[in-house]
Simulated assay, not measured.
Amino acid sequence: MALSVVMPLDISGESAKYPALFEKMGVDFTARRCTTPEEVVVLARDADAIITEGSQCPIPREVIENLNRCRIIAGTQIGYDTFDILAAAERGILVTNVPGYCVEEVSDHAMALILACARQVVALNEAAKRGEWGFGPHSSHIREVIRARMDALGGKTLGILGFGAIGRSLAPKARAFRMRVLASDPFVDAPVGQEAGVEMVDWPTLLRESDFISIHAALTPETRHVFDENAFASLKPTCCLVNT
């Protein structure tokens, strides 16, 4: 019997290669978008492997407990918080992710959002759509509000929550703008940060001293709701929070 691989998503982008690749390997491959756990079970009940992007199609315990033959759940993303890894372990099912996926792209995007906040790009774009620009007679909002919020990045402090691959990719980009960079990560020692020109600090210090905070921590029971009411109360009033 041929191995069976299923993907509970539409075929698009990189996955357009999958049908031909699996056909060459003699593997039965089926892709169909599933929007509920029940639909995933119908598709994957007798499959040997599942390929999925967790944010689009989570694999919870109620799915895993109804898989008869599955050996591996292969996530195509960095995070694995949308897979019930404990349920998978109980069934002897391997769960994989792609730690290096889009590291540069995500850190680039985080830096772009930091710049957009500092230079008020979105607000200026909206003002231009209203016919306001420069210092003309219809630009009082730009002069009095938007420009007052604009600032240079040099000398500002960026706090990075989670100093893994993406956080470490973002740090030199921020330092190129002459920003001071802090990072908070209980699994990273100070010498690692020092090599990257980054100060490793505790969570309260990061909250208190940052002008910008970029989130790059995995979603775990320990990090869920880490930005609670007390955390927001600790921020500078002008702090910008970037969540890519």
Rank of each mutant, 00 (worst) to 15 (best):
A217N: 04
I215A: 03
F227V: 10
A218Q: 12
H216M: 05
V198I: 13
H225P: 00
V198F: 02
T223V: 11
L207N: 09
I213D: 04
D211T: 10
L206C: 09
M200D: 01
V226W: 03
D202P: 00
T205Y: 00
G197A: 07
F227G: 07
L207R: 09
V198S: 05
L219M: 11
P204E: 12
P221K: 08
V226L: 15
G197T: 13
E199D: 15
H216W: 06
E209G: 02
F212T: 10
L219T: 15
L207T: 12
M200A: 04
A217E: 03
T223A: 10
R224P: 00
L207C: 10
P204D: 12
S214G: 11
F227T: 11
A218L: 13
R208K: 15
L207Q: 10
A218S: 15
D202N: 14
E222A: 15
T220S: 12
S214Y: 05
E209P: 00
T220Q: 08
F227R: 10
D211R: 04
V201P: 12
L207I: 12
L207D: 05
E199P: 00
D202L: 03
E199I: 01
G197Y: 02
T205N: 01
R208C: 02
A217G: 05
D211N: 14
I215Q: 02
I215W: 01
S210A: 14
I215S: 03
R208T: 10
G197V: 11
R224S: 13
E222W: 01
V201I: 13
L219Q: 08
V201N: 09
T223E: 05
V198K: 06
A217F: 02
D211F: 02
E199R: 10
S210M: 03
R224W: 04
L206S: 09
F212H: 06
P221L: 07
V201R: 06
G197L: 05
H216Y: 07
W203G: 05
A218M: 11
T220G: 06
W203T: 12
P221N: 08
E199Y: 00
E199G: 00
E222V: 14
H216C: 09
M200Q: 07
V198L: 06
V201F: 03
V198R: 05
F212L: 03
D211Y: 02
R208F: 00
L219H: 12
W203P: 01
V201A: 07
H225G: 02
I215P: 00
E222Y: 03
W203V: 11
P204A: 14
H225D: 15
D202G: 06
E209F: 00
H225W: 02
A218E: 13
T220E: 05
S210E: 03
H216S: 08
V198P: 00
H216I: 10
V201T: 15
A218T: 15
P204K: 14
V201Q: 09
D202Y: 01
T220V: 13
E199S: 11
I215D: 00
I213H: 07
V201Y: 04
P204G: 13
L206R: 07
L206A: 09
D211A: 04
T205S: 05
P204T: 15
